[in-house]
Lab assay of single mutants.
Amino acid sequence: MLDDRARMEAAKKEKVEQILAEFQLQEEDLKKVMRRMQKEMDRGLRLETHEEASVKMLPTYVRSTPEGSEVGDFLSLDLGGTNFRVMLVKVGEGEEGQWSVKTKHQMYSIPEDAMTGTAEMLFDYISECISDFLDKHQMKHKKLPLGFTFSFPVRHEDIDKGILLNWTKGFKASGAEGNNVVGLLRDAIKRRGDFEMDVVAMVNDTVATMISCYYEDHQCEVGMIVGTGCNACYMEEMQNVELVEGDEGRMCVNTEWGAFGDSGELDEFLLEYDRLVDESSANPGQQLYEKLIGGKYMGELVRLVLLRLVDENLLFHGEASEQLRTRGAFETRFVSQVESDTGDRKQIYNILSTLGLRPSTTDCDIVRRACESVSTRAAHMCSAGLAGVINRMRESRSEDVMRITVGVDGSVYKLHPSFKERFHASVRRLTPSCEITFIESEEGSGRGAALVSAVACKKACMLGQ
């Protein structure tokens, strides 16, 4: 009897593995994704193909990295998701002549009506938060230079001027797309009239992360975010950046690689679950690469896999709870928690219980395998993109072996128990001629924006502006 049951459990697990095998990517698959990513990057950089390229390769006008001589107080704003952060950054000489960066910050959550109302409502709310922060720190009387981390696709015309191309991540505030974001912020500050600010720089969160990590390690020339969304930036040779005049030196390019796949480059790798996630998203047909990796989508992918296993009578005796059938019910943090389970399955059992399920031991094991399959594919897909960037940098610099540091931020990278190990191992397999160091950014977005502002202020002083 026991043997029969054991055989049935083994057969069930084997069927589960057959279904989950769809998520496995072979090294040849990853090399294919990497080569296609490089081709799209090239198209994004070139003037004649930029418009139709899915990977936009947006110039950021960040050319210099901090040298350690900029000092002063800077205000930093960070808008990239449902939370908005205001930070005071003091850049100065530390002990023994070292450079020191001290920060104080406060988080504000953005109400739904500000995210989806008008641009005026959104930026009025942001300036209200700045006003509140300055009151708390008794700094209303000071006109501070301000660095703005704005983590949406922007076409820069200068370091302090950028046109919002399109909202992502659930934002829909009308009247912002096609307009200068810094102008919208300046107008809102003017409307309030109770404080003055000098907006000197606007950067993407990947750029802010790279600059913040450069402060720790001067070989950091790539910034990457794996959180709600997924994106990367890197220092490109100016001669390859056709959208900006000049051939000397390097400029940081914001790849906006989340949109890779929007022209069909990933079609052969998309599964039924991916198509369902895409169809029910706020932007169907867009940001397809990001939807395979980002935390906004990972939990939902797992939920759809679990429903398939229920329908195949391989999980929960073929019956799903009402909660499990509800879109968004299986949160991405559950994926991390399930994979963090120590082996007694308590954590998995508790999560499934909150979803109205009474799982068996085998159910718990199957749910864990589903989570591992989805998150491992995410790590491997992400590795193909980064390997594409790094191999490109090595080739354009004609280096036999390139040493490089990548600064990384984002909740999936930082909080998932195995993502970074799987990701690092896969990147290294795909970049055999590179020695890569990964560092995690601390308060990256805010500190990085302030350091970019410090560079901009120093330049302005040198130019006598």
Rank of each mutant, 00 (worst) to 15 (best):
G147I: 12
H218N: 05
A232S: 07
N313V: 06
S281T: 09
T82M: 10
L164T: 11
V427K: 00
Q26D: 08
E237P: 09
E27G: 06
A11I: 14
M8L: 11
Q323I: 10
V226Y: 10
D124E: 06
M107E: 15
H218M: 06
L266K: 01
G410I: 02
T49G: 04
T103M: 05
H137T: 04
T228A: 13
W99P: 08
V222G: 01
P145D: 04
L30S: 09
E14H: 02
G147W: 08
V33P: 03
L2F: 13
V253K: 02
K32G: 10
S398K: 14
T103P: 01
S69F: 08
E331L: 14
D187Q: 15
G80V: 08
E48Q: 00
G92R: 08
E95W: 08
C213V: 12
H424I: 09
I348R: 03
Y297D: 04
E319D: 15
F195V: 08
N204A: 04
I189Y: 12
R7P: 14
D160G: 13
S418Q: 15
E95G: 13
V374T: 04
G170Q: 04
A188Q: 03
E279R: 12
R43F: 12
S433M: 06
M107C: 06
V455C: 12
H105I: 14
E440I: 10
A449P: 06
V55L: 10
H218F: 04
E339R: 00
F150N: 10
L270F: 05
T149H: 09
E442V: 09
G261F: 06
T65G: 11
H380K: 14
K291S: 01
Y214Q: 01
L75K: 02
C434D: 08
R308K: 06
E256M: 10
L304S: 10
D135F: 04
S433V: 05
A21W: 15
R303G: 00
I293G: 06
E440W: 04
R275P: 03
A370Y: 00
M107I: 09
V408T: 10
S54V: 14
K140C: 07
H218L: 03
M381R: 01
D344I: 02
V91W: 04
N240A: 09
M121N: 08
S263K: 13
G258M: 06
T255V: 15
G183A: 07
L304E: 09
M402S: 13
A282V: 13
V455P: 04
C461Q: 09
F195P: 09
A282K: 10
G97V: 09
S54G: 10
C233E: 02
F123I: 05
P359K: 11
I126F: 15
L463V: 13
H141I: 04
E265I: 05
R63V: 09
H50G: 03
E28Y: 05
L2M: 05
L415F: 06
E236V: 04
K102Y: 09
A384N: 01
V253N: 02
V374C: 07
L165Q: 13
V55P: 01
A11S: 08
L25G: 02
G223S: 07
N283R: 10
E443Q: 12
M393A: 04
V455W: 15
N231A: 12
Y214S: 09
E96D: 13
P59E: 15
V408H: 01
Q465W: 07
R191P: 01
S426H: 11
G318W: 04
V55N: 01
A119E: 12
E51L: 08
E120S: 05
E421S: 08
E322C: 10
E442Y: 07
A456I: 12
T103E: 08
L304P: 04
G294I: 05
E442H: 00
S398D: 07
W99F: 11
R186A: 11
M235S: 03
S398G: 03
E40M: 08
Q18N: 11
E196I: 09
E237W: 06
A460Y: 11
G229T: 14
L146G: 14
V101F: 06
G92L: 10
C252H: 00
L276F: 12
G388M: 03
V305M: 08
V412N: 01
D363Q: 00
D160K: 12
N391I: 07
L451R: 14
E28G: 11
R191G: 04
R308V: 10
G117W: 08
N204L: 07
Y61K: 04
L58P: 00
M115N: 08
L2K: 09
K142F: 08
V62T: 01
N179R: 13
V55C: 12
E40S: 06
V101Y: 04
M462Y: 08
Q98N: 13
D29T: 03
Y273S: 05
E52S: 12
I439V: 13
S398A: 07
R369Q: 09
D205M: 03
G72H: 07
T342Y: 07
S433T: 09
E440T: 07
G261E: 01
R397W: 06
R186C: 05
V427G: 01
N180G: 10
R5I: 14
G227K: 00
E322V: 11
I19F: 12
Q138K: 03
P417N: 08
L164Q: 15
S54L: 07
G117K: 03
K346T: 07
E272Y: 07
I351A: 07
A384K: 00
D135G: 11
G388H: 03
T405C: 12
H105S: 07
I390R: 00
T168R: 12
W99C: 06
N313S: 12
G97D: 07
V408M: 09
K56Y: 01
L304C: 11
D78A: 14
G72A: 02
A320L: 05
L79C: 14
A370C: 06
D409R: 10
L58C: 09
D124W: 03
S109T: 06
S263L: 05
D29H: 15
T326Y: 03
K31G: 07
S453C: 13
A114V: 15
K142D: 04
C364Q: 02
C371I: 07
S64Q: 13
E120N: 05
M197N: 04
V305S: 04
L307R: 11
A208Q: 02
D365L: 04
P417W: 02
N204V: 04
S375N: 13
V199C: 14
L292A: 12
K31E: 15
K32E: 10
R368W: 12
D42I: 05
L75M: 09
L79N: 07
R345T: 14
N179D: 12
L292D: 00
M121L: 08
D341Y: 06
V302C: 11
H156D: 12
L271Q: 03
R308E: 07
V226Q: 05
L2Q: 08
Y413E: 02
L146D: 02
Q465M: 08
L20P: 01
C213A: 07
T149D: 15
H156Y: 14
G147Y: 02
I390L: 09
K39F: 05
L184Y: 12
A232E: 00
E372N: 12
D4M: 03
R447Q: 13
G44Y: 00
L144F: 04
E395Y: 14
G94A: 13
D344E: 06
G175V: 11
G299M: 00
